[in-house]
Protein backbone atom coordinates (compact mmCIF):
# COMPACT_ATOMS: atom_id res chain seq x y z
CA UNK A 1 0.00 0.00 0.00
CA UNK A 2 1.65 3.29 -1.05
CA UNK A 3 1.95 6.24 1.31
CA UNK A 4 -0.23 9.25 0.48
CA UNK A 5 1.13 12.73 -0.22
CA UNK A 6 -1.10 15.75 -0.66
CA UNK A 7 -0.86 19.53 -0.78
CA UNK A 8 -3.11 22.21 0.60
CA UNK A 9 -6.09 22.62 -1.78
CA UNK A 10 -5.21 26.28 -2.37
CA UNK A 11 -3.08 25.41 -5.41
CA UNK A 12 -4.35 25.72 -8.98
CA UNK A 13 -3.99 23.00 -11.67
CA UNK A 14 -0.71 24.46 -13.04
CA UNK A 15 0.93 24.22 -9.65
CA UNK A 16 -0.47 20.74 -9.01
CA UNK A 17 1.49 19.46 -12.03
CA UNK A 18 4.70 20.71 -10.35
CA UNK A 19 3.71 19.08 -7.06
CA UNK A 20 3.23 15.84 -8.97
CA UNK A 21 6.86 16.09 -10.09
CA UNK A 22 7.86 16.85 -6.51
CA UNK A 23 6.11 13.63 -5.48
CA UNK A 24 8.27 11.69 -7.94
CA UNK A 25 11.36 13.35 -6.44
CA UNK A 26 10.12 12.46 -2.95
CA UNK A 27 9.65 8.79 -3.87
CA UNK A 28 13.21 8.59 -5.23
CA UNK A 29 14.70 10.26 -2.17
CA UNK A 30 12.90 8.11 0.38
CA UNK A 31 12.83 4.96 -1.83
CA UNK A 32 9.18 4.32 -0.97
CA UNK A 33 5.94 4.24 -2.96
CA UNK A 34 4.03 7.48 -2.55
CA UNK A 35 0.73 8.29 -4.22
CA UNK A 36 -0.01 11.97 -4.91
CA UNK A 37 -3.62 12.67 -3.98
CA UNK A 38 -5.40 15.98 -4.47
CA UNK A 39 -8.58 17.17 -2.80
CA UNK A 40 -11.15 19.55 -4.20
CA UNK A 41 -11.80 21.30 -0.92
CA UNK A 42 -10.34 21.87 2.53
CA UNK A 43 -13.21 19.89 4.06
CA UNK A 44 -12.53 16.86 1.85
CA UNK A 45 -8.85 17.02 2.79
CA UNK A 46 -9.61 17.27 6.52
CA UNK A 47 -11.88 14.28 6.25
CA UNK A 48 -9.10 12.22 4.61
CA UNK A 49 -6.66 13.33 7.33
CA UNK A 50 -9.14 12.32 10.04
CA UNK A 51 -9.40 8.88 8.43
CA UNK A 52 -5.60 8.49 8.49
CA UNK A 53 -5.37 8.62 4.69
CA UNK A 54 -2.62 11.27 4.51
CA UNK A 55 1.02 10.54 5.43
CA UNK A 56 2.88 13.52 3.94
CA UNK A 57 1.39 16.95 3.41
CA UNK A 58 2.45 20.40 2.30
CA UNK A 59 0.05 22.19 4.62
CA UNK A 60 -1.05 25.74 5.12
CA UNK A 61 -0.35 27.14 8.62
CA UNK A 62 -3.97 26.85 9.76
CA UNK A 63 -4.13 23.13 8.97
CA UNK A 64 -0.59 22.60 10.29
CA UNK A 65 -1.92 23.52 13.70
CA UNK A 66 -4.53 20.75 13.60
CA UNK A 67 -2.09 18.25 12.08
CA UNK A 68 0.69 18.80 14.65
CA UNK A 69 -1.37 19.23 17.81
CA UNK A 70 -4.15 16.74 17.11
CA UNK A 71 -2.83 14.25 14.58
CA UNK A 72 0.79 13.72 15.61
CA UNK A 73 2.40 15.15 12.45
CA UNK A 74 5.86 16.76 12.63
CA UNK A 75 7.16 19.68 10.57
CA UNK A 76 10.12 18.91 8.33
CA UNK A 77 10.84 22.04 6.31
CA UNK A 78 9.36 25.23 4.99
CA UNK A 79 10.21 27.28 1.91
CA UNK A 80 9.85 30.35 4.16
CA UNK A 81 7.73 31.86 1.44
CA UNK A 82 5.23 33.76 3.51
CA UNK A 83 1.49 33.47 2.97
CA UNK A 84 0.04 36.93 2.63
CA UNK A 85 -3.52 38.07 1.96
CA UNK A 86 -4.73 40.78 -0.42
CA UNK A 87 -8.12 42.45 0.00
CA UNK A 88 -9.49 43.94 -3.23
CA UNK A 89 -12.66 45.60 -4.52
CA UNK A 90 -13.91 46.18 -8.10
CA UNK A 91 -11.86 48.88 -9.85
CA UNK A 92 -14.94 51.12 -10.22
CA UNK A 93 -15.96 50.74 -6.55
CA UNK A 94 -16.27 54.03 -4.60
CA UNK A 95 -14.51 52.23 -1.72
CA UNK A 96 -10.88 53.26 -1.52
CA UNK A 97 -9.89 52.14 1.98
CA UNK A 98 -10.82 49.34 4.37
CA UNK A 99 -12.47 51.88 6.68
CA UNK A 100 -14.92 52.91 3.96
CA UNK A 101 -16.38 49.38 3.65
CA UNK A 102 -19.77 49.12 5.30
CA UNK A 103 -21.74 46.51 7.26
CA UNK A 104 -23.75 44.23 4.99
CA UNK A 105 -21.00 44.02 2.36
CA UNK A 106 -20.64 40.80 0.36
CA UNK A 107 -17.25 39.07 0.64
CA UNK A 108 -16.05 36.71 -2.11
CA UNK A 109 -13.43 34.23 -0.91
CA UNK A 110 -12.31 30.63 -1.39
CA UNK A 111 -12.62 28.08 1.42
CA UNK A 112 -8.92 28.57 2.30
CA UNK A 113 -9.05 28.97 6.10
CA UNK A 114 -5.79 30.99 6.33
CA UNK A 115 -6.83 33.60 3.82
CA UNK A 116 -10.35 33.78 5.19
CA UNK A 117 -9.01 34.41 8.71
CA UNK A 118 -6.47 37.03 7.62
CA UNK A 119 -9.00 38.69 5.33
CA UNK A 120 -11.45 39.11 8.20
CA UNK A 121 -8.64 40.49 10.41
CA UNK A 122 -7.86 43.06 7.72
CA UNK A 123 -11.54 44.13 7.76
CA UNK A 124 -11.60 44.66 11.55
CA UNK A 125 -10.64 48.36 11.32
CA UNK A 126 -14.02 48.84 9.57
CA UNK A 127 -15.80 46.98 12.42
CA UNK A 128 -16.72 44.21 10.00
CA UNK A 129 -17.04 40.61 11.16
CA UNK A 130 -18.83 37.42 10.16
CA UNK A 131 -22.01 38.66 11.86
CA UNK A 132 -22.45 41.78 9.74
CA UNK A 133 -21.09 40.65 6.36
CA UNK A 134 -22.15 38.02 3.83
CA UNK A 135 -19.63 35.40 2.72
CA UNK A 136 -19.76 34.05 -0.84
CA UNK A 137 -17.48 31.00 -1.14
CA UNK A 138 -15.94 30.55 -4.60
CA UNK A 139 -14.09 27.58 -6.08
CA UNK A 140 -10.92 29.47 -7.00
CA UNK A 141 -9.27 32.90 -6.83
CA UNK A 142 -10.19 33.57 -10.47
CA UNK A 143 -13.83 33.02 -9.42
CA UNK A 144 -13.32 35.49 -6.56
CA UNK A 145 -12.06 38.02 -9.14
CA UNK A 146 -15.05 37.27 -11.40
CA UNK A 147 -17.51 37.79 -8.55
CA UNK A 148 -16.00 41.26 -8.00
CA UNK A 149 -15.87 42.19 -11.68
CA UNK A 150 -19.51 41.12 -12.20
CA UNK A 151 -20.49 43.09 -9.07
CA UNK A 152 -21.77 39.98 -7.34
CA UNK A 153 -19.46 40.79 -4.43
CA UNK A 154 -18.26 44.07 -2.86
CA UNK A 155 -14.88 42.87 -1.58
CA UNK A 156 -12.70 39.81 -2.20
CA UNK A 157 -9.94 37.96 -0.31
CA UNK A 158 -6.97 36.58 -2.27
CA UNK A 159 -3.79 34.73 -1.45
CA UNK A 160 -1.40 37.55 -2.46
CA UNK A 161 0.56 35.22 -4.79
CA UNK A 162 -2.72 34.26 -6.49
CA UNK A 163 -3.68 37.93 -6.85
CA UNK A 164 -0.31 38.70 -8.43
CA UNK A 165 -0.79 35.71 -10.75
CA UNK A 166 -4.07 37.08 -12.19
CA UNK A 167 -3.83 38.34 -15.78
CA UNK A 168 -3.26 42.06 -16.32
CA UNK A 169 -6.72 42.27 -17.89
CA UNK A 170 -8.35 40.87 -14.73
CA UNK A 171 -6.17 42.95 -12.40
CA UNK A 172 -7.06 46.13 -14.31
CA UNK A 173 -10.68 45.56 -13.26
CA UNK A 174 -9.78 45.25 -9.57
CA UNK A 175 -8.48 47.66 -6.93
CA UNK A 176 -6.37 46.26 -4.07
CA UNK A 177 -7.07 47.99 -0.74
CA UNK A 178 -4.51 46.35 1.51
CA UNK A 179 -2.14 43.39 1.62
CA UNK A 180 -0.99 41.73 4.80
CA UNK A 181 2.72 41.82 5.66
CA UNK A 182 3.12 39.21 8.36
CA UNK A 183 6.27 37.51 7.06
CA UNK A 184 6.38 34.78 9.69
CA UNK A 185 3.51 32.55 8.61
CA UNK A 186 4.19 30.04 5.85
CA UNK A 187 3.21 26.61 4.55
CA UNK A 188 5.30 23.65 5.75
CA UNK A 189 5.96 20.09 4.70
CA UNK A 190 4.78 17.70 7.43
CA UNK A 191 5.25 13.97 8.00
CA UNK A 192 2.54 11.84 9.58
CA UNK A 193 3.05 9.22 12.31
CA UNK A 194 4.03 6.28 10.01
CA UNK A 195 6.99 8.25 8.60
CA UNK A 196 8.31 10.07 11.69
CA UNK A 197 11.59 8.14 11.63
CA UNK A 198 12.40 9.51 8.15
CA UNK A 199 12.26 13.17 9.28
CA UNK A 200 16.00 13.92 9.56
CA UNK A 201 16.80 12.12 6.33
CA UNK A 202 14.13 14.06 4.44
CA UNK A 203 15.24 17.31 6.04
CA UNK A 204 18.81 16.73 4.77
CA UNK A 205 17.62 15.90 1.26
CA UNK A 206 15.31 18.87 1.06
CA UNK A 207 18.10 21.16 2.20
CA UNK A 208 20.42 19.77 -0.46
CA UNK A 209 17.77 20.20 -3.18
CA UNK A 210 18.81 23.72 -4.18
CA UNK A 211 22.40 22.54 -4.75
CA UNK A 212 21.40 20.04 -7.47
CA UNK A 213 20.43 21.29 -10.97
CA UNK A 214 17.33 19.09 -11.19
CA UNK A 215 16.28 19.95 -7.66
CA UNK A 216 16.91 23.64 -8.31
CA UNK A 217 14.64 23.53 -11.42
CA UNK A 218 11.90 21.86 -9.45
CA UNK A 219 12.19 24.45 -6.67
CA UNK A 220 11.98 27.22 -9.27
CA UNK A 221 8.84 25.72 -10.76
CA UNK A 222 7.27 25.56 -7.28
CA UNK A 223 8.21 29.21 -6.77
CA UNK A 224 10.66 28.48 -3.92
CA UNK A 225 14.27 29.47 -3.41
CA UNK A 226 15.07 26.61 -1.06
CA UNK A 227 13.76 24.54 1.83
CA UNK A 228 14.71 25.49 5.37
CA UNK A 229 14.47 22.94 8.16
CA UNK A 230 11.75 23.68 10.71
CA UNK A 231 12.33 22.54 14.26
CA UNK A 232 9.64 21.65 16.74
CA UNK A 233 9.75 24.99 18.58
CA UNK A 234 9.56 27.04 15.38
CA UNK A 235 6.46 25.10 14.39
CA UNK A 236 4.92 25.48 17.85
CA UNK A 237 5.54 29.24 17.65
CA UNK A 238 3.73 29.46 14.32
CA UNK A 239 0.85 27.43 15.73
CA UNK A 240 0.65 29.72 18.80
CA UNK A 241 0.54 32.67 16.44
CA UNK A 242 -2.29 31.18 14.37
CA UNK A 243 -4.07 30.34 17.62
CA UNK A 244 -3.74 33.95 18.77
CA UNK A 245 -5.03 35.25 15.45
CA UNK A 246 -8.00 32.93 15.50
CA UNK A 247 -9.07 34.40 18.86
Amino acid sequence: MPYQFTVSPDFGPDQLANWHIFNTWLQRQLAIDIHFETFGSFDAQRQAISEGKVDIIYANPYDASFLVREKGFVAVASPHHSDETTVAVPADSPVDSIESLEAGCRIAQTDDPDISMMGMILLEPADLHSGNTKTLVQDSYIQVAKALIQNNADVGFFLSDAYEGLSNLVKSQLKPLVSSDIQIVSHALLLGPPLLDRREELQDRLQAMSEQPQGKNLLDSLGFKDWKPVDEEEMEFMIDLIDALAA
Binding site: I121, E124, A126, D127, D240, L241, L245, A247
Partner: peptide, 21 residues
Protein backbone atom coordinates in the same frame (compact mmCIF):
# COMPACT_ATOMS: atom_id res chain seq x y z
CA UNK B 1 -1.76 33.44 24.57
CA UNK B 2 0.27 31.18 26.85
CA UNK B 3 2.88 29.00 25.13
CA UNK B 4 2.18 25.57 26.58
CA UNK B 5 4.83 22.87 26.07
CA UNK B 6 4.41 19.46 27.69
CA UNK B 7 1.71 20.89 29.93
CA UNK B 8 3.88 23.77 31.24
CA UNK B 9 3.59 27.48 30.43
CA UNK B 10 7.03 28.38 29.03
CA UNK B 11 6.17 31.91 27.94
CA UNK B 12 3.57 34.07 26.25
CA UNK B 13 3.00 35.20 22.66
CA UNK B 14 1.37 38.53 22.02
CA UNK B 15 -0.04 39.54 18.63
CA UNK B 16 -1.44 43.02 18.00
CA UNK B 17 -3.53 44.14 15.08
CA UNK B 18 -5.19 47.32 13.87
CA UNK B 19 -8.28 48.29 15.88
CA UNK B 20 -11.28 50.21 14.54
CA UNK B 21 -11.68 53.87 15.51
Amino acid sequence: IPNVRNGEIVGYTSVRRKPSQ
